[in-house]
Amino acid sequence: MGWTLGQLRTFVTVAELGSMTRAAEQLGYSIGAVSQHMSALRRAVGSELFLRRGRGMVLAEAGRTLLPRARSILAAQKQAEMAMLGRDFRSEAIVTLGVFGSASTRALPSIVRLLGQRHPHIEVRAREINVETMSAAVIDGAIDLGIGINYPAVPLPPMRGLSWSTVAGEDFGIVVPAGAPRPSPQDLAEADWILPPAEELFGRAMRLATSALGIAAKETHIVTDTAVALALAGTGLGLTLATPIMMSLGGPDVGLHPIAEAGGREIIVLTSPDPADPVAAVAEVVAEVFRPRMGP
């Protein structure tokens, strides 16, 4: 096929950023040049590489097939360049890891450190993804693997092109201002509650968790951002639920009272069903970083 390294590099950048405009800014090209690269590559492949979704772009089936191979070609090209410079360079692989707020705060430094010790030839690049769309990002090829969440009360359905494994489990607890006593059942029933939107998986899981406590939670504040919800709870504006890992987004003003009756969540690692060796190596490191936190 008559593609060039420049076209492949542009394709990978567009795939990772989901926008030709943003790709042009990062590469220092004009939007017209990026569009020409993509048109030429589409003709060489013989299939559409991207589909429009809203204002952004997602990979079509041919694009999902090409993306990991394009990354391998570009890594091999870099290896050849460095070998010609006389450097001792065994191999290099770049793996894009999807993360969300509490996972990146709590675990990402340990993942990068352990990966550097075990697999110094693998470079991991973090990309923040809404945890609600982490599965789609893996399936679409926007990331190589992702750290995601599964709620046993609202389990993820099987998805074609996706595989996952559970690496940690943790129970919900009630978030209160630091030093405040554990709320009584009456307190729980009468309190204002800070909950995520009901249309989100987390929102549905939270509502099932409060129902398991035997209450109909008074939904006073609807908040998507966990850090904001913790901040509101710390000022006494309401109660919310969180896990120990989620509490890493809070500060000294909040405390957590474990309450197993409310259920919990699982940290999962999402990959394609047959990940490349570097992706599998990163997945193994992610699992090791999280597994010590698993309950019995």
Rank of each mutant, 00 (worst) to 15 (best):
V58M: 03
A287L: 11
G63W: 02
G264P: 03
E284D: 15
F290H: 01
L213A: 14
L241T: 09
V12H: 00
P296Q: 14
P155V: 05
V112G: 14
G255T: 11
L51I: 09
T220A: 14
P273R: 06
L230K: 08
R207G: 05
V154Y: 02
A15K: 02
A70S: 05
M247P: 11
V95G: 04
V269Y: 05
M20D: 10
S35Q: 11
E261C: 05
P185Q: 09
P196A: 15
I222P: 10
A23S: 13
E261Y: 08
V175F: 01
S104P: 08
S184N: 03
A126D: 08
L27W: 09
P157W: 06
A276H: 11
I139K: 03
G250S: 15
S248D: 14
V289S: 01
R160S: 10
T4N: 03
A24S: 14
G255W: 05
A15F: 00
T65K: 12
A40N: 13
Q7A: 14
G236R: 10
G98T: 11
V285T: 07
L270Y: 00
A62L: 04
E81A: 04
P185K: 14
L115A: 08
R71P: 07
V34T: 14
P183M: 07
T4K: 02
P252N: 11
T224H: 15
H121I: 06
G169T: 11
Q186G: 10
S102E: 15
K78I: 06
I194F: 13
T96S: 06
H221K: 12
T220H: 15
R204K: 10
E132G: 01
G101W: 01
F50L: 04
A40E: 15
A23V: 08
E288C: 12
G101P: 00
A153Q: 07
T166V: 15
L115D: 08
G18T: 02
P181Y: 13
V223L: 08
V289H: 01
D274E: 12
V154K: 02
A93G: 10
L162E: 00
A80L: 06
F290C: 02
V14M: 03
A283Y: 00
S104H: 13
M206K: 11
V138T: 13
A70F: 00
P258S: 03
M84E: 12
A103H: 01
R113F: 07
V269D: 03
A233L: 13
H119A: 15
I143R: 00
R113W: 14
P292S: 06
P252D: 06
P68K: 06
A280F: 02
R43S: 10
R90M: 10
G250T: 07
S110D: 15
R291W: 07
V95S: 04
S104F: 06
S110T: 09
G169D: 15
